[in-house]
Design a protein around this nucleic acid. Structure first.
Length: 703
DNA sequence: AATATCCGTATTTTT
DNA sequence: TACGGATATT
């Protein structure tokens, strides 16, 4: 869990804490923030620049509402991650009655939708015992539908399941017709329009029949419930105040929900910063910010521009990066310019490195040097565009025994073995879950597609799915010989899980012997994967039910293997490595942005369209504004071309086009050469000049 | 019917 | 390169 959410420190604004009579929620706020907090009711749009204390303002507003008598369970606080909700409510609790605060409805759109649908689903004809599919499950199911529709065989090539799932989710979340989505984002699939439509229809039908909801369904059904003339009025009357954080990263569907929920009471507070919109790929549109005043014509608009986080030289750079954006991408009515009263004149550093190795060495050196100056590792972070950009650095950190945690890399739940165990649990939880059966049966050696189809029929998964588990436990299914022993073990384990009603932790323990039998044949690193099962079991809160454990894990997955066990060593200091996306809302005293080369940032995949490029610029802005005191930007001059080439080709890089015009705002450090003093003894400008010669030559023979 | 082999294509960010 | 998917082999 991130320790450093937006301006966490209670006194990070450095205000004197006023008189003792002053209520806690009023303390340490500037006038603008106070306007946000004391806004009586009615729609409110807060334009909150990076580091301007929006978390504080929002938390204080909730605290004021509670302190002044609003029933906490009639407040809805929607945040981007569950982490953010937890953090914010903890702060609210510190300002008012923390037991009352626990009643506040807080969480992501998806998590809140889940809660509401479990409670009220039957009213709109939804079984409350639905299973939530995560993205990977949904993709698998699309794949199954694709196969059973006989697509992809012979004939023309057909989009792959993950592409199809991406198209589907875009259509739903953006609420844009398939035709347009294909034209705009997936032009190479346009010929398959009709087949895609068919697959989507079959996919939907299948989900409905088996009581499965994917992430998108959670939003769709919530919206349906709140818009229905039957259930809507009662549901809308449930909340007196709705507050939405990170409004710039909501999509069309989410905006609909906010509009519908807020229509009667009008007490909607939306907080966001269009300059930090970085989830366009997930169909979020910052236009929701601009549209807010149309949806709620009486809305009050308040801009927070005083930054409490960064020193001025860092803000100057961040402001300059934004100001360079083409004019049409900067709507006037949302304009903000960050300023600060924080003293400090240290300028950001720009370091041109010889290659990735040199970059890693430089970052390690800098991190350690800053620690000597008193900045603990935990107050420093290394940020990068994509997960694997930190590969080289991770090796170097390990070599030097510098502890670190990485966010935003491979997710725990996506690891195959974790999905295996989850599937085993899901079968017990819901014997009608075909996807789970599918995966579980696949674990048996000697069982392939054909045997699985036969078992599918014999277990009655289509006709009488509720009895499938007892049929399996009754045995005698004519399994192939290699599967017999493992199947026996599975039977015993499932039987115990079911009859003894084991909780999730015990159930995982009970299923482990089966995994011990089957993992070695499937995975080269079986022992490590088995060890993860212990972690998984330990992550289950005491007393939680199996099904609740499963959905919570789906909606709020741990970031990476081992995360649930807490940081590497509890009282150890460790460096944070994070993608820029995962760093949203966080801050550190020192930030090291690596790989800031054109092609990485902006990613060369975004070069095609204007919107994509604009989003990359905002991403750069987000990265820069995470830093409080120290900002180091590095980029390697040469890096491996790991595209189609197999040889050790290098590729000369140039500084990110977003930073190139701002070089004068940096202190530039000469090329950092990994091995030896060669570079260090040269005059400063020497090596970059040489690099420019190389770049010039490169330009001459490129294409 | 399950497993081994070959081929073509994608590409990043996450609830 | 790496991975999914389709074909060839045991």
């Amino acid at each position: 869990m991130f320790a450093h959410l937006d301006d966490v420190g209670a006194d990070s604004q450095g205000h004197p804490s006023g008189g003792d009579q002053e209520p806690a929620w009023r303390r340490g706020l500037n006038l603008r923030q106070l306007d946000v907090v004391t806004h009586p009711g009615g729609p409110l749009l807060v334009l909150a620049g990076a580091g301007t204390g929006k978390t504080r303002a929002l938390a204080s507003r909730v605290a004021r509402l509670v302190a002044e008598g609003t029933a906490p369970d009639r407040i809805l606080l929607l945040t981007f991650t569950r982490r953010a909700a937890t953090e914010m409510l903890a702060r609210v609790g510190a300002m008012t009655d923390h037991r009352a605060t626990a009643q506040v409805w807080g969480g992501t759109f998806h998590a809140v939708a889940n809660r509401l649908l479990r409670r009220h689903g039957p009213a709109i004809g939804l079984s409350p015992a639905f299973t939530v599919l995560d993205q990977a499950d949904a993709t698998d199911l699309v794949g199954l539908v694709r196969t059973s529709a006989g697509l992809g065989e012979g004939r023309r090539r057909f989009p792959r399941p993950d592409t199809m799932a991406a198209i589907y989710t875009r259509v739903v979340n953006a609420q844009v017709p398939l035709d347009d989505v294909l034209a705009e984002a997936f032009p190479w699939c346009r010929d398959h329009h009709d087949d895609l439509a068919g697959v989507f229809a079959a996919y939907t039908e299948r989900k409905r029949r088996h009581h499965l909801l994917d992430f998108d369904d959670l939003l769709l059904f919530w919206r349906a419930m709140v818009c229905s003339p039957d259930t809507g009025p009662a549901l809308r009357a449930t909340f007196d105040h709705i507050l939405v954080d990170e409004y710039q990263d909501t999509n069309a569907l989410q905006a609909d929900i906010v509009a519908a929920l807020g229509a009667p009471c009008g007490n909607v507070t939306a907080v966001g910063d269009d300059a930090q919109a970085i989830y366009g790929f997930r169909a979020a549109t910052a236009e929701n910010m601009a549209r807010f005043t149309t949806t709620f014509p009486t809305a009050t608009v308040i801009a927070l521009e005083q930054n409490y986080r960064s020193v001025q030289p860092i803000l100057d750079l961040a402001n300059a990066v934004l100001a360079d954006a083409p004019a049409e991408q900067r709507p006037d009515h949302l304009a903000k310019v960050l300023w600060t009263q924080r003293p400090g004149t240290v300028r950001p550093r720009l370091v041109t490195c010889h290659d990735e190795l040199a970059q890693s060495a430089y970052v390690c050196d800098t991190v350690l040097a800053l620690r000597e100056e008193g900045i603990d590792l935990r107050h420093q972070a290394v940020l990068f565009r994509t997960g694997h950009h930190s590969d080289a650095l991770e090796l170097e950190l390990a070599r030097r025994d510098i502890p670190f945690v990485k966010y935003g890399g491979l997710r725990f739940l996506e690891a195959a073995h974790i999905k295996d165990v989850m599937a085993l649990l899901r079968v017990v939880d819901n014997p009608a879950d075909q996807l789970a059966w599918h995966r579980a049966l696949d674990l048996l050696e000697g069982v392939g597609p054909a045997t699985r189809r036969r078992l599918h029929g014999e277990l009655g998964l289509d006709d009488e799915p509720a009895a499938a588990l007892s049929r399996f436990l009754a045995g005698d299914l004519g399994l192939p010989a290699p599967a017999r022993q493992a199947a026996g073990e599975l039977r015993a384990a499932w039987s115990d899980c079911s009859t003894l009603e084991l909780g999730p932790a015990d159930a995982i323990d009970r299923l482990t012997p089966f995994c011990v039998l089957t993992f070695p044949g499937r995975y080269a690193d079986a022992p490590a994967r088995l060890a993860d099962l212990v972690q998984l079991a330990r992550s289950a809160p005491a007393g939680i039910s199996r099904s609740r454990f499963l959905t919570e894990l789906t909606l709020d997955p741990p970031e990476r293997t081992g995360d649930r066990a807490g940081p590497p060593h509890l009282d150890d200091d460790y460096l944070v490595l994070s993608t820029i996306h995962s760093a949203k809302g966080c801050e550190w005293r020192a930030v090291h942005l690596i790989g800031a080369a054109d092609g990485n940032l902006p990613s060369d995949m975004a070069l095609g369209d204007r919107d994509g490029l604009a989003e990359e610029r905002r991403l750069t802005y987000v990265a820069l504004t995470r830093a409080r005191d120290h900002l180091t930007v590095t980029f390697p001059l040469r890096f491996h071309v790991h595209r189609h080439g197999r040889d050790d080709r290098h590729h000369l890089a140039q500084l990110s086009r977003f930073l190139q015009p701002q070089r004068h705002l940096f202190d530039e450090i000469a090329d950092h050469h990994e091995d030896g003093p060669t570079g260090a003894t040269l005059p400063r400008a020497e090596v970059p000049a040489a690099a420019q010669v190389d770049a010039l030559l490169q330009d001459l023979w490129r294409r």
